[in-house]
Design a protein around this nucleic acid. Structure first.
Length: 614
RNA sequence: GCCACCUUAGCUCAGUUGGUUAGAGCAUCUGUUUUGUAAACAGAGGGUCGUCGGUUCGAAUCCGACAGGUGGCUCCA
């Protein structure tokens, strides 16, 4: 298995090399960046000068790649001293390679390790010292590369070029933008086909498609991009989820607060957000006063004002505030996408103000709440410890940072969470524990987050009176369980493929009438009334259509339970519920009394289970 | 914001190299039908082909700008 993995890796690496060969043959003089292996395939960054490569060119590039593969040239590995390599880069007109090599020479091993493996890592020569780098040559084309490669160009399996994208040289938007050509590659055509089919399947559960089909949310050009609106059905999802999220915290002492949607910009100058995010705030102009207002982009500064409203004693702590509220951020246009990234986002936000000795207990409570929520929605999340990096975009004393980071790690370890650590992912005021969910095509998105903050209490001069009468500074713990409701929905809709469990389903029971006789309609009405009495979301389909058609409509809308009501049901007072296929049903009698059916559905909803007790 | 691509009816999509009144299925409405567990039948309405500008005797089709979207990059409190 490991053997196969290694081979697949070498194959993908070789394909990146072959693609670079092909592009160089087709457009002589292109300048090459880096060409690493990624999940499912590979890419290569290319600067083609004035030439624009587009997806229409894929056929041509793939054909040339096939030629190279047919030639079956050996990949020959060689090494050069770094100065010779630099000379080679200069001679062959490869300024990007030259830059990398110069950095390698200058940086030495220590720094090279810190750099992204996709960049410098690809050209370092494994464990050996950096005074030498490796090359792979196939025929007349040589490329700087760590490898490994397969032995010759005809041993590369099945591949397909997928798309082309812009990518800044070395990930910095101040640098030149190169063209990144992506391909996928597998051992066999069969596996490639399987992968492409999987992508087709994933498209069917795309939250944007399901949002349309299941009548959940919409965008309007008149309202603006990144500003979703929710239909009655979509609003049920939002409210059921945020209610649950709130319950989980109210249980452990959180109290709801309310803050306005606009505020003077001075609030964010105080918090530090203005200087960091000023250009992403929506400005609001008052016609009555000279104040500059902004739409609030987050809630912590407001919550510090509520905390500071009355003097606090150590006995008052922890103080726990909870607010589900919509924030506004003027994201750059290219960063918006479906519900995942919007300009009006609703956070199920909360803040704890506590003493240092209370951090552990508070963190435990929040991590447990996150665990409960994600167990209920049946999602497995990766936990990311998001630390600061060496850049200067962070506020606060470095020793406080170190302490906060180790406290977060301790909490994660104590709670037995699987985690990974990543530098440069922290908020500017503190490190975070981020819960990462995966969408239908495998992209990761942050949902829940727990953050430790020593900075804002400082900047807002928050205090409480300690046991000995001295003035103390509280610590803030930020937490959102869903994160942004919109983003959560984007992954949750894809996770469930729109087959929502009963407790969140916008429509829990659909009643279908067999005919439009008065008696039938009256019976349907009475069943619906009973269902509503039990707090169920129920609709009646009394359309003049065939029963088959109406069943189909209920199926298409993924309604969990459907009742067909006609003469038989009126006579017996019993129903035979049609259960959505994904719902686990414990073996039980197929038909049952109306009251029994409705009561058990109602119990399922209350207990937020995914199993049916019918 | 940057790179590539996309935009035809409410939805999904046809529309041949620029050439009459731009088509289909579903949905909607009307009529017939009163229906038993995934699509009854018939008819009708619905589009200045994303917007604006240009080329042309003639533009859904070619060119440009803008808007919206998709996939990436950058960013993400």
């Amino acid at each position: 298995m490991a053997q196969n993995q290694d081979n697949l890796h070498a194959m993908r690496h070789s394909l990146a090399h072959i693609m670079a060969t092909a592009v160089t043959r087709l457009w002589p003089g292109v300048k090459l960046g880096v060409g690493p292996v990624v999940e499912h395939g590979f890419y290569y960054d290319i600067d083609a000068g004035d030439v624009t490569i587009s997806e229409d060119d894929f056929e041509k590039i793939e054909a040339e790649m096939q030629n190279i593969i047919k030639e079956g040239k050996q990949f020959v590995r060689s090494t050069k001293p770094i100065d010779e390599a630099i000379a080679w880069a200069q001679e062959s007109g490869q300024p990007y390679k030259e830059e990398l090599l110069n950095d390698l020479k200058r940086a030495g091993t220590t720094v090279a390790k810190d750099l992204d493996a996709d960049e410098l890592g690809t050209i370092t020569d494994g464990d050996s010292a950096l005074d030498e780098v490796s090359f792979y040559t196939n025929g007349d084309f040589a490329d700087l590369c760590r490898g490994p490669h397969v032995e010759s160009t005809n041993k590369v399996g099945a591949f397909k070029l997928m798309r082309i994208a812009g990518a800044y040289w070395r990930g910095n938007e101040k640098n030149a933008q190169m063209q990144r050509l992506y391909g996928v590659a597998f051992d066999s055509p069969k596996e490639l086909r399987k992968h492409l089919e999987m992508l087709e399947e994933a498209k069917k559960r795309d939250h944007r498609k399901l949002g349309q089909e299941l009548d959940l949310f919409l965008f309007s050009d008149l309202v603006g991009s990144g500003l979703p609106m929710f239909t009655p059905r979509g609003t049920v999802l939002r409210e059921e989820l945020s209610r649950y999220s709130n319950e989980l915290r109210e249980r452990s002492g959180f109290e709801k607060v309310w803050t306005p949607n606009i505020t003077k910009k001075e609030l964010y100058e105080a918090s530090g957000h203005w200087s960091k995010f000023g250009d992403e705030l929506f400005l609001v102009k008052s016609q009555e006063s000279s104040d500059d207002f902004v739409l609030k982009p987050m809630n912590c500064p407001h919550h510090t004002r509520i905390f500071a409203f009355q003097p606090k004693s150590y006995r008052d702590l922890p103080v726990r505030y909870l607010e589900t509220t919509t924030d506004y951020r003027d994201e750059k246009s290219g960063e918006l996408g479906g519900l995942n990234r919007v300009r009006a986002l609703t956070q199920d936000d909360s803040h704890v103000f506590c003493r240092e000795d209370q951090i552990e207990q508070e963190m435990d409570g929040l991590l447990a709440a996150a665990g409960d929520l994600y167990k209920t929605v049946d999602m497995n999340l990766k936990v990311r410890l998001s630390y600061r990096d060496a850049s200067d975009g962070y506020l606060g004393d470095e020793s406080l940072w170190n302490k906060a980071q180790s406290q977060l790690k301790a909490a994660v370890l104590k709670n037995g969470l699987d985690y990974f650590e990543e530098e440069g992912e922290a908020a500017f005021y503190g490190p975070k524990i981020d819960f990462m969910a995966t969408d239908a095509i495998g992209r990761e998105h942050q949902v829940a987050t727990v953050q430790l903050d020593f900075v804002q209490p400082e900047r807002f001069e928050l205090e409480y009176v300690g046991e000995d009468g001295s003035v103390q500074r509280p610590i803030m713990i930020h937490c959102a369980l869903l994160g942004s409701i919109e983003r959560f929905l984007s992954v949750y809709i894809e996770h469930t493929a729109g087959k929502f469990p009963v407790w969140v389903a916008p429509e829990q029971v659909r009643i279908i009438t067999v005919n439009q006789e008065d008696e039938t309609v009256a019976f349907a009405d009475s069943v619906a009334a009973q269902a509503k009495e039990l707090g169920l979301r129920v609709t009646i389909d009394n359309a003049n259509e065939s029963v088959g058609k109406k069943i189909r409509n209920a199926e298409v809308m993924k309604v969990p339970y459907t009742l067909v009501l006609g003469e038989k049901e009126i006579e017996s007072g019993e129903v035979t519920p049609r259960v959505r296929k994904d719902i686990e049903v414990q073996p039980s009698h197929a038909h049952q009394k109306v009251e029994d059916f409705l009561r058990s559905v109602s119990n399922e909803a209350k207990s937020r289970t995914t199993k049916s007790s019918l």
